[in-house]
Simulated scan of single mutants.
Amino acid sequence: MSMIRDLRAAVRPVRRRERSGAYKSVREDGGARSAVVDCAVYRAGRRCSEALSPADALRRVRAGDGQEFVWIGLHEPTEQEFSGIAQEFGLHPLAVEDAVQAHQRPKLERYDDSVFTVIKTLHYVEHAELTASSQVVETGEVMCFTGRDYIITVRHGVQGSLRSLRHRLEDDPELLAKGPSAVLHAIADQVVDGYLAVADAVQNDIDEVETDVFSPPGGRSARGGDAGRIYQLKREVLGFKRAVSPLLRPMQLLSERPMRVIDPDIQNYFRDVADHLTRVTEQVLSFDDLLNSILQANLAQATVAQNEDMRKITAWAAIFAVPTMIAGIYGMNFSYMPELEWKYGYPAVLCTILAICYAIHRGFKRNGWL
């Protein structure tokens, strides 16, 4: 209820800004910025040349013959910036709140004659080498409000720009003529294709870690067997899985369940997106299992290495125990000790110590302890 009151309170100032032809807010430094990246009306798949505000674009579309739709793109709008558009298009307050706050789980929600979709975007962060603090996958969000004659995209994050996608769709007016659902499919298809590219890059990182862990001890790099690197990569894969797995159900709904705002011809294309997403999901799950195995193998190797060190320490302690024992015996202050008066007693004891130590060392060496 508080959200609805805030929207109603923001209607008047936003409408005053509409008369000036732009949705703007004032930054703290006094400058002005606009959350609207692009706003265009499309008729028969072709962009109308005149520049319109979101409110004017909607009025033109609603006054037309039903052959036009408006596509509004926004980047990280504030609640004040988005409230006017939400009021004009009749967007549900709960969906508006999710779009402004971001950090939402991938989902699909239906509100009367509109569909609200949240899609996570992923970007692979290039790095010279993988460390225990490397960021591998960077996430963003694209939220889509899809109606009969409009689509509003709200993007969060520096990645996942839709500018090139808009230009590519404008070069294919036959597809764009299918309406807002064609734009929604193109966005989902581009994001899922990005998942595939990220999955291939992450696979290379996992292969590198796996090679280091299972390299022979003499040829292993200084980074090999680093549990910190494996655990960091596992955390990044977990973020990857959180972005991909929940999106599978919305894509299946878009491809299987009839919806008024989704063109039947476009609905078939969502099935292809769902298939690609299934492949990525299975690949990410295999990443998680593989990293678990690599981490366990790394810990097992560390345990084996510790056991080998302990065996070496124990072997040398056994060798040094012989001269310690003999020296301790002859260090006792008794008058009658064997060989005390013998001229060659001292050299004989030393030779005995060396012989016994050599025999023990050879035995440990033969058994692989040294």
Rank of each mutant, 00 (worst) to 15 (best):
Met3Ala: 13
Val11Met: 11
Arg16Leu: 15
Arg17Val: 10
Arg17Lys: 15
Ser20Ala: 15
Asp29Gly: 14
Ala32His: 12
Cys39Leu: 03
Arg43Asn: 03
Ala44Met: 07
Glu50Val: 08
Ala55Ser: 09
Arg59Asn: 09
Pro77Phe: 10
Gly84Thr: 11
Ala86Asp: 02
Gln87Arg: 12
Phe89Leu: 05
Phe89Pro: 00
Gly90Cys: 11
Leu94Asn: 03
Leu94His: 03
Val100Phe: 01
Tyr111Gln: 01
Leu122Gln: 00
Thr131Cys: 11
Ala132Asn: 06
Ser134Phe: 00
Val137Glu: 02
Glu138Tyr: 01
Glu141Arg: 00
Phe145Asn: 00
Asp149Gln: 12
Thr153Gly: 01
Gly157Ser: 06
Ser164Lys: 12
Leu165Tyr: 05
Leu175Arg: 14
Val183Ser: 02
Leu184Ser: 04
Ala186Cys: 07
Asp193Thr: 07
Asp200Thr: 12
Val202Ala: 08
Ile206Trp: 03
Phe214Ala: 01
Arg220Val: 03
Arg220Asp: 06
Arg220Cys: 06
Ala222Asn: 07
Gly228Lys: 01
Ile230His: 00
Gln232Val: 13
Phe240Leu: 12
Arg249His: 14
Met251Leu: 15
Arg257Thr: 12
Met259Val: 07
Met259His: 13
His276Pro: 07
His276Ile: 08
Leu277Glu: 03
Val284Ile: 06
Phe287Lys: 00
Leu290Tyr: 10
Leu291Arg: 00
Leu291Lys: 01
Ser293Met: 11
Ser293Arg: 15
Asn298Asp: 10
Ala305Glu: 14
Gln306Val: 13
Trp316Ala: 08
Trp316Arg: 10
Val322Arg: 01
Met337Glu: 12
Glu339Leu: 15
Gly345Cys: 05
Pro347Val: 14
Leu350Met: 14
Ile353Leu: 09
Tyr358Glu: 08
Arg366Trp: 09
Asn367His: 12
Gly368Thr: 02
